[in-house]
């Protein structure tokens, strides 16, 4: 083997064993780990469901004076001002769920735009194609929808506190705020991540060689979304 050949063999990095990027394997391992994190939180919520000794309750009407609860509707004979509605606000949370689902759509479009950034016109003719080609637009949209979800959550948390449910009030409050708070913290980290990518995109433009950066953030973002799909059903809808 000639000297130059040796030098060449030494230069640079050997290709990865699987041909995949390290970071993508790491993010999937991380997502696997997060499954166990949310499994612990969700288990705790479900174990403590219906074990709170005081109200407010997620799905039941309750009467402070008589300590009676009812899943069916208002409790007869409860003094005025002592009767409380179930605390979960399904219409509002349905909207925030929709917002988060749509953010996932925006995220896949952002990734597609970045991956095809070197092929002008890939998304077809007309204004629709031009819209689909804008990675900045879709990154921004995803971040805004994520921030919108957080606004819904902030509204939900403050209204619960006004209605007398804090993290200290009962088991429902403790497990609910911790579970959804953890999810919200993940969304917050995701929004920061997306804004960072957007800043890089504005500064120097993201192209196919950066696709992996967007890909791993997208995987994280969709994972946070599927966790919410589970939470929405298990916490909000199932009584």
């Amino acid at each position: 083997m000639s000297t130059t050949a040796v030098a060449h063999a030494h230069a640079g990095h050997p290709p990865t064993t699987t041909g995949l990027d390290h970071r993508k394997i790491a993010i999937w391992a991380f997502i696997g780990s997060e499954c166990m994190l949310f499994a612990s939180l969700i288990s705790t919520y479900l174990i403590y469901k219906g074990r709170s000794v005081t109200g407010p309750f997620p799905h039941e009407w309750w009467c402070r004076a008589t300590k009676a609860t009812s899943a069916a509707g208002p409790i007869a004979g409860c003094p005025a001002g002592e009767l409380f509605k179930p605390i979960l606000n399904i219409p509002v949370t349905s909207q925030s769920t929709f917002v988060l689902l749509m953010s996932s759509l925006a995220m896949v479009l952002a990734l597609a735009a970045v991956e095809n950034n070197d092929k002008p016109g890939w998304a077809g003719p007309g204004w629709g194609g031009r819209l689909l080609e804008s990675s900045k637009l879709w990154l921004l949209t995803t971040a805004i929808l994520g921030a919108g979800f957080l606004c819904y959550q902030a509204y939900e948390f403050t209204s619960f506190i006004h209605e007398g449910l804090t993290i200290k009030t009962n088991l429902f409050g403790s497990s609910f705020f911790t579970l959804t708070g953890f999810h919200g913290a993940h969304v917050t980290a995701g929004v920061l991540w997306l804004l960072t990518l957007l800043a890089i995109d504005i500064k120097r433009g993201l192209g196919p060689r950066d696709a992996l950066l967007v890909d791993i953030s997208a995987l994280y973002w969709h994972f946070v979304d599927v966790v919410w799909i589970a939470i929405f059903t298990l916490v909000y809808l199932i009584r």
């Binding site: 230069a11 640079g12 990095h13 050997p14 290709p15 064993t17 991956e115 196919p208 992996l212 890909d215």
Partner: peptide, 26 residues
């Protein structure tokens, strides 16, 4: 497991090569 010949040069090259692989999946 297909091992390409060693890459010559900077991690940038490797990164773009991998992006190219990813591009193949697009």
């Amino acid at each position: 497991m297909a091992h390409e010949p060693a890459h010559h040069g900077a991690p940038e090259t490797v990164a773009s090569a991998e992006a190219h692989v990813a591009g193949g999946e697009v």
